[in-house]
């Protein structure tokens, strides 16, 4: 499944294998053949073959941490863009507490249009839009930082093995980086130079995720000063 240690690249319709394996994400079984349904990299774990997509939208999964942007609100909930095919709903009771009264409490006083929120997907299925919650530690409105968008399939590369990549960036730049599984990343840093270098490192990962020598390229992006 690999070619000289490198992940195998596939396109929609490409045959991955005819071996008896289980079809994972972005893989379809056609007859006795496992076929890729996305542009991406083949990944094999146990007996499951899947393809890590290099583009596309985020499919919400319960318990995923995401970064959302407020795009609208009703009297009861905010609507968040979470880079998914569906709008995420954040209930007002989550923010105001149980004594929320729609006639008395103004939603925009807490979260206005364009605000970023670190949140968790509470539940989602095919029949209804994802329900988002901020009812947890370290979740809620993101007050400062810049949003950088990467493909959701590249989030694992940004985090690195046991968080090594993200730790390297944070240590080198003094930036605080909030990563959403939906591919939205908020970078905040007190110094403009650190912010620029951290953003550059995230962009380097977006451009060369899953490629060999990624850590070296990220290090060189971090080494270059803000210019």
């Amino acid at each position: 499944m690999t070619h000289q240690g490198m992940p195998r690249t596939v396109m929609p319709g490409d045959t991955i294998t005819r071996e008896a394996r289980r079809a994972g994400d972005n893989v379809v079984l056609v007859g006795d053949t496992l076929v890729s349904s996305a542009v991406g990299l083949v990944s094999v774990s146990d007996d499951t073959v899947s393809v890590i997509p290099l583009s596309g939208k985020y499919m919400p999964r319960a318990d995923d941490l995401v970064v959302g942007m407020v795009i609208s609100h009703t009297s009861q909930a905010w609507e968040l863009d979470i880079n998914a095919p569906y709008v995420g709903f954040l209930l007002a009771t989550d923010v105001f507490g149980r004594d929320f009264a729609s006639h008395a409490d103004e939603l925009t006083s807490k979260l206005a249009l364009g605000d970023l929120v670190a949140a968790r997907v509470a539940n989602f299925d095919r029949t209804r839009d994802p329900l988002i919650t901020i009812d947890d530690r370290d979740l809620g409105k993101i007050d400062s930082g810049e949003l950088v968008k990467i493909a959701p399939g590249k989030v694992s590369s940004l985090i690195g093995r046991q968080g090594s990549m993200i730790q390297a960036i944070e240590t080198a730049t003094d930036a605080a980086i909030t990563i959403g599984q939906n591919g939205w990343v908020v970078v905040s840093c007190d110094s403009a130079d650190g912010l620029l270098r951290a953003k550059r490192a995230v962009s380097a990962i977006e451009q060369g995720a899953h490629s060999q020598g990624l850590m070296d390229r990220v290090k060189s992006a971090l080494a270059r000063g803000g210019d």
Partner: peptide, 11 residues
């Protein structure tokens, strides 16, 4: 469509 990451059975 493939560039947008829309799942496709084939090109």
């Amino acid at each position: 469509l493939a560039d947008a990451g829309i799942p496709m059975r084939d090109m």
